[in-house]
Design a protein around this nucleic acid. Sequence first.
DNA 1: TATGAATGAGACTTCATTCAT
DNA 2: GATGAATGAAGTCTCATTCAT
Lengths: 221, 221, 221, 221
Amino acid sequence: MKTSATMQTKDRIIEAAIRLFNQKGFSGTSVREIAKEADVNVAHISYYFQGKGGLLEQLISDFYEGYIQMIETQVHQVETCHAKECLLHVVFDILSYQHEYRQLTRFVYREVTIDSTLMREIMSTYLTKEKYLFHLIIERGKSTHVICEELSLSTFMIQLKSLLMMPYLQPQYLTEVLYLNPNEPYFYHMYFKELSRSLHHLLEPKEPRLGAHMDLMKSSN
Amino acid sequence: MKTSATMQTKDRIIEAAIRLFNQKGFSGTSVREIAKEADVNVAHISYYFQGKGGLLEQLISDFYEGYIQMIETQVHQVETCHAKECLLHVVFDILSYQHEYRQLTRFVYREVTIDSTLMREIMSTYLTKEKYLFHLIIERGKSTHVICEELSLSTFMIQLKSLLMMPYLQPQYLTEVLYLNPNEPYFYHMYFKELSRSLHHLLEPKEPRLGAHMDLMKSSN
Amino acid sequence: MKTSATMQTKDRIIEAAIRLFNQKGFSGTSVREIAKEADVNVAHISYYFQGKGGLLEQLISDFYEGYIQMIETQVHQVETCHAKECLLHVVFDILSYQHEYRQLTRFVYREVTIDSTLMREIMSTYLTKEKYLFHLIIERGKSTHVICEELSLSTFMIQLKSLLMMPYLQPQYLTEVLYLNPNEPYFYHMYFKELSRSLHHLLEPKEPRLGAHMDLMKSSN
Amino acid sequence: MKTSATMQTKDRIIEAAIRLFNQKGFSGTSVREIAKEADVNVAHISYYFQGKGGLLEQLISDFYEGYIQMIETQVHQVETCHAKECLLHVVFDILSYQHEYRQLTRFVYREVTIDSTLMREIMSTYLTKEKYLFHLIIERGKSTHVICEELSLSTFMIQLKSLLMMPYLQPQYLTEVLYLNPNEPYFYHMYFKELSRSLHHLLEPKEPRLGAHMDLMKSSN
DNA sequence: TATGAATGAGACTTCATTCAT
DNA sequence: GATGAATGAAGTCTCATTCAT
């Protein structure tokens, strides 16, 4: 068992790292800065996390560990529910989770765009599981005819994840261009509403008519 | 006028930088690596671009310069068109532009998530203009009653941009989890189709009924 | 409290820096050379002194700090003395101080001739104080009628400082042209004698007759 | 014969070099800065002066060439004169020469404090000659009994040269501490007056009585 | 003669980590 | 467990010079 002082040190490092990685990126942050921000000796970072890389790994793993666990819990809790309602519950929980760990979320979502061994492991460990969990819900929805049979899981995941990640990948865009404040609770409640509406359209059985783009396709190279 | 040899050197640096920044991020890439990849003397990077930072600036500026110019051209060309058609044309052009400069796009979209002075300038210079151009189209659509009066520009921009950026911010997710290949032309044609469908729902005047999430709101903190 | 090992490292750097700056000038010396001369890792220079510039700053500040303190001590000690005697004591102390820190003195006196922000600060911090301290002595001498009323402080300071600095600014001239050895204690005792004689003439109330140069003045442009 | 354009280029380089060497020292100035300041191509510096070192050499040689020639001219012109008057003429000419080439003088006097092969050559070539010329005058003065027999040449040279160089080695001290402006013609006329007075005392046959310092000598280590 | 791109060496600094205390 | 000095590698950038045009 770790002593309280040790926990404090580890936690202070984690908090400082999240703050700084978020601001300047992983590579853009030095261990000295982290140690200074956390008011800890530099050697502690290597000592507790086996180096800067280990710290990164732990932060990302922790994030996705909690992320997947939260979805799993929700999916199993509402196993008997109406699929669409379950879906919305999960989405709402994800938004809450992201909001609770705002800085970590933002940093992880950016770092995950880098092609590295670590990230590939994360993909196959956590994101594949996430996909599977949504697959379960969607299938349940299809079998109970509340979700359109033709809906492809990929299409769904792309739309869902792009909207879920947007506020964390482009926070400055929201604040400086759209004058929204993604850190306020109000924002993410509104955001949930919009997201729900989008998903609603996506899951709807009736296919909308669209013609314009078909011609565009042909004229392009 | 620059000699051909010079252009080759500058261009080789730019290409190498895009490739590496894309793979390892800006901070994660050293000028030595870039010089090696470009088969160019290290000193050239400072010589031509006033340092690594200048190279970053130029890449990002170039990207957004072309980006905005392309949208502007399209918007003015189809000024007399049906607003919705114009919108689809612009979206299609953006997807094409992004596809043409795949690696640069991917890198820029990631780097833009970092809060720096440069990025804030990019926001206020280019992205504010982008918003304005979409504002013009949307307003035209509203005045001709093909776009729902209640649609807020912010809502529209969030949905549009999140979908536009998604394949470039999460390419590994697409390839390794969803088994899609965002680099193939086929993909981005399909993607355009999906995007069009989403926008169609968004612009539609008729408001869908949704209730489930309202209850969720109340039970949350 | 610093450990003995640390002090050794810092001191070794300082000694090596003085030696090399003295020989080759500040800009003409590289941190690598200093590190090599001090038998220390290159990184230590930035580590302990915040870079080469910080090292320079510290050396110069240390020199003038000790310099002013020494004069102050002397001035206050002999407050009740005869002004002229006090003056000679101070001059003797300065010569001793300069001799004790020969290499540092020489380097500082050369570097001080460069127009930089640092040097301007040194001027206004230390040399203004030095002037003030001599002002005190001179005024005391004037009020007790042992120093000529008409003597201007500027004239005095110029003559005094030019003679004080000479052996350190032109050591090669002394050795290679005049065949004197300014490093020997004998030399600076002789030098003190000459200096005293010069000052004596300067402080003397009786004005010498001089005519020759008056005509020169008129014939010059 | 050099073309006018070439001369312009060479001269522009020389002027720029003097200006910059004066401000930042030799090692502190880069050839690129010089080329930029002179509005000349960088390659010209290596081309015309065989590199940065050659430029330095030329500047210093030119300075001392003119310096010695000027003294020689004066010494031979006034060969038949009264030794003291001749001395004052020479001193006045040196002050004028220094004033005319203010920036060069200042830079050369600083650089001459560095121990290098070049400087040692300068010493043995020019400064030894300077000493010899003053030796001639002093000896003439001694033989005509207008200069004290006991005056040593070294003592004289030290006092003379320290005063001659002072305004160029410590210009900031004069401006920022003593509030004098060494660039004004008025200043150096005054300075000549003071210098003359000092020399007068020095050459005087009657030895002043001084006792205080003799005791100091014994109490020092 | 004039240019400016190219070069490679070397400048200063910061990095993450280790280790003796 | 905690410290901070020490390390060597690597970072970015600037240097003076050369050379083909």
